[in-house]
């Protein structure tokens, strides 16, 4: 991505960019450095701690500021010391289920809200928006009571149902934003040729909005992957625990050393970091598409 300054063609006497004084450059460099340290240090610290030894972490003087790369071999034994692989497996199940269910519901709803005008369209849009305002903590109390009656507690299926309810509207807004940008004329010509709505949606619209679908998938997948509150409340058997529940169980207990905790957190965070950076643009515009116009 180039900056505005760089992307503007020079014309006539207009300056391409303002000349920057040395003092301002230094000031800017300092501010940028501070900003980078503030944002980057905690993540760096997670990585550095995972390479620390128990004696260096809790010993005199504390953990060294530089990562002890030589200890990278200890990661292998951490994999068996901590049941992180099993937790990540459960998280993967929840994340996949949430993604599939969310996309199925979101794609069809987004298409209807984008391409049809129908009675109750405003109400439907409001229901989607209002779930984003509703605190999960408020819903969890009655939902717990309902799930207890329906036998959905302590199982992955119930968790997928609950997670989908909160991330599906977000996915819907991302996908609707994508569909809104496609010119309707494309579909219209297909309809003149006698193509049904369903076929138009699956053969013409979906391929065109694949970036939005990708962004929505990342959001849905990592909502299921990261979600803590429902998982922590619904899943009582530790064999069913997702990674967030397992990681949170390290808090308030003292027998798991911090290098193992941080290694588990790193393993858990890495896929999220990679995919969020990859799909960043689509997610950001989708999250605010209900809010920012133009």
């Amino acid at each position: 991505m180039t900056t505005n300054i760089a992307s503007v063609a020079p014309r006539g006497a207009a300056p391409r960019a303002r000349s920057t004084s040395v003092l301002m450059r230094i000031g800017r460099a300092i501010l940028i450095t501070l900003f980078v340290v503030f944002a980057g240090f905690p993540v760096y610290w997670m990585f550095a701690t995972s390479l620390g030894t128990e004696s260096s972490l809790y010993g005199e003087g504390g953990q060294p500021l530089w990562p002890e790369i030589g200890n990278i071999g200890q990661w292998g034994s951490f994999l068996t010391d901590v049941p992180i692989i099993g937790w990540l497996g459960n998280s993967f199940i929840i994340a996949t289920g949430t993604t599939i269910l969310s996309l199925l519901l979101a794609i069809t709803a987004a298409y209807a809200l984008s391409r049809y005008r129908f009675y109750g369209r405003g109400v439907a849009g409001f229901i989607f928006f209002s779930t984003q305002m509703l605190p999960e903590a408020l819903i969890i109390v009655p939902l717990y009571a309902i799930f207890a009656g329906a036998g959905l507690l302590n199982g992955h299926f119930g968790l997928i149902l609950a997670d989908t309810a909160f991330v599906m509207p977000v996915a819907m807004f991302i996908i609707k934003g994508g569909i809104d940008k496609i010119p309707y004329e494309l579909e219209e010509s297909a309809r003149i040729d006698g193509c049904s709505r369903a076929r138009i949606l699956f053969t013409i619209v979906l391929p065109l909005i694949s970036p939005s679908i990708a962004a929505a998938s990342v959001i849905a997948f990592f909502d299921g992957w990261n979600e803590f509150m429902f998982a922590n409340t619904f899943l009582s058997s530790s064999s069913l625990w997702t990674a967030p529940v397992g990681l949170a169980s390290f808090l308030g207990q003292f027998y798991t050393p911090m290098n193992q905790v941080m290694f588990s957190a790193l393993l858990f965070a890495l896929p999220a970091i990679v995919f969020f950076l990859w799909a960043q643009r689509g997610i950001v515009s989708g999250l605010t598409s209900g809010a920012v116009k133009g």
């Binding site: 980057g40 993540v43 990261n226 990674a243 967030p244 808090l251 858990f268 999220a272 995919f275 950076l277």
Partner: peptide
Amino acid sequence: VVTIPWAVPTVAAALIFVWI
């Protein structure tokens, strides 16, 4: 780099800060 905190899962972020 400055975008990463947004991508770090909340549970991981909480563990990091509790340690800090």
